[in-house]
Design a binder for these strands. Structure first.
Lengths: 331, 331
DNA sequence: TCCTTCTATTTAAACGTTTACATTTATATT
DNA sequence: AATATAAATGTAAACGTTTAAATAGAAGGA
């Protein structure tokens, strides 16, 4: 059942059928009604491949994900999905597992016009490659803009978020504050570290490189990180982590050492994923507006879909610091 | 840059170029070499839409996911992805959020031949709809086959897994064993509950409906479930949960009541997701071979891609019971 | 030489749409 | 009634491939 069959059934040309399908106003009401009934009767659905070939559009966008095993991305994708659907775009999720060759492979879909655009949550390519990509294809970075790249992006102010947290710790009297971060040397990570250092500096504490440990973002890296920090002299009384998993791993180690987290020592996570509320102690965290990060990313992408030469925008969304037991809040 | 351009550059017809691309042996070695150099030189990549239109194949398969916020699926998808890639298929992940209209919308991609096949991790449609779908399109269910449907599927023996766990509990002297399950009334869930009941029955304990609580699979449902179970008389000394999140929620409640989980009461999770190792106590769990579940699913799908009339197969993969602190294993 | 057989290549149609342009039909204006 | 204008519809090309069928060319056999 294709457009030709419908045309035959209605004694019309395929062009008219196509016009009805595409809501072209230049078709008589009676004809339109006739066509719609036929379409309905035969449950005709236009072949998307034929349409794509002709229009040179796929009406699909690619979402590039570093990993599938992080709760954090789930709601972002939902934000993208729902906004994209309103505009008639379907989304296609691809996982790079942080591998450059995978990233290149999937980005190829963009160059092949297999998808009309891409929202990327993590890139390994350098700023030059990203800038060039963004100049030629609709491309937006979400949460993790490549530093120095000329590209539209949406994120929170990572530096400020950690700055605020450290400032709060200092105001509460903490004199030794540690940080467990990652070592991807990416924008969000460096921002968070800068916030940490700047706050120490601005409020009279000296940055000690032994109090900033860097590794991956797994639970175990949090444990190892906490162990390292606690071997310092003086020991920290508060630890800021670059993710909730790090915070959880750290908490797990601290508890194993007989410390009461939230009383003897404070721990702050990042991302406010669901797990933070179901551990003991519950983990304080910095909330990112995940749904809106996704939503705004698609909006930016949509501007590029309409006009590839539209100017690049950098959107910064607000965050919230949420205190739970791990920073001493009563349950 | 399309196949025509390459043809022109090589003074050959497009047919010959196409043959080279598709490794047709009927092309002279010298010609092949010439074409390949040109393809290489101009970085030509065949347009996938044109090819799809002509071959009526998309070389894409859809993976239908109930939710993005479950660690469990991540490795399954990787198993599908890597196996699919070997056969030249790309995968497209869609999330239904358990909504039937979303499921229908995405399954439409199958009927529209927008994708060549589908592996589904969860379906709301009834057995008749699934059987009919599977008869007409390459379709495989992974982990959650629709009961009574004639369809290829891969899963573990859920009944046996819980049966074994309960049997172990009984052998260790537990006399009152509770279960926290979901209420989707799906195959895996009912299997797990049956395993629970059967084991009680086979080893001389009587099934008490107050000791089986059903709800969703969120952390909080685990907490609420545990509370309900502990209000029973006699109180359970062991609890089997239908997921790790339920187990974690339950543990969180039990601890809040001053119980030492792993000593005063045992808790068993399900799925062996990463979190189980980073909580305290660490959570015992039933491991599903996630990567292989994905891999075998694609293999089954591939059989259907080659021959839609090939017979449906039901594959059962092995599981492992992994004891950690929550069932009394020392760290 | 002529025929046969095989191999390598070309030709042209097909896949299912959309759309610029052409044509027909209806309506309004004189 | 004749003409101009507007509205509705049709025609045919185009998108980029693959592939059955046709053709050309080479090699071998008589």
């Amino acid at each position: 059942m294709n457009i030709k069959d419908i045309a035959k059934m209605c004694n019309l040309s395929v062009a008219t059928i196509s016009r009805v399908i595409n809501n072209d106003p230049k078709v008589a009401d009676s004809t339109r009604k006739k066509v719609l009934t036929a379409i309905d009767k035969y449950k005709f659905v236009p072949n998307i491949t034929g349409r794509s070939l002709r229009t040179q559009k796929s009406n699909k966008i690619l979402v590039l994900l570093p990993t599938m095993s992080n709760q954090f991305y789930s709601e972002i994708i939902q934000g993208i999905e729902e906004t994209a659907e309103e505009k008639g775009y379907a989304i296609l999720v691809a996982v790079t597992n942080l591998q450059e060759h995978q990233e290149i492979k999937y980005l190829h879909m963009l160059r092949m016009k297999h998808v009309d655009g891409c929202i990327s949550l993590f890139n390994t390519l350098d700023s030059e490659a990203i800038s060039s990509l963004a100049k030629n294809y609709p491309f937006v970075q979400c949460c993790e803009p490549t530093m120095g790249a000329d590209v539209s992006s949406v994120e929170i102010n990572n530096r400020q978020a950690v700055y605020d947290v450290v400032k709060q710790f200092i105001n509460r009297g903490h004199k030794t504050i540690g940080m467990i971060s990652g070592e991807y040397y990416k924008s969000s990570e460096l921002g968070r570290e800068t916030g940490y250092k700047d706050a120490l500096n601005d409020f009279g504490l000296k940055f000690d490189k032994n109090l900033l440990v860097k590794n991956f973002y797994r639970y175990e890296d949090g444990s190892v990180g906490a162990k390292k920090l606690m071997s310092n002299n003086p020991k920290p009384t508060a630890i800021v982590c670059a993710s909730d998993s790090l915070a959880l791993g750290a908490t797990s180690y601290l508890k194993s050492q007989g410390l009461i987290v939230g009383k003897d020592i404070c721990v702050m996570g990042f991302d406010n994923t669901a797990i933070t509320m179901y551990t003991s102690p519950t983990i304080s965290s910095i909330n990112q507006p995940r749904y809106d990060l996704g939503k705004e990313s698609f909006k930016l992408l949509y501007e590029k879909l309409l006009d590839i030469n539209s100017t690049n925008k950098k959107i910064i969304l607000p965050y919230q610091i949420i205190h739970r037991e791990s920073t001493g809040c009563k349950p």
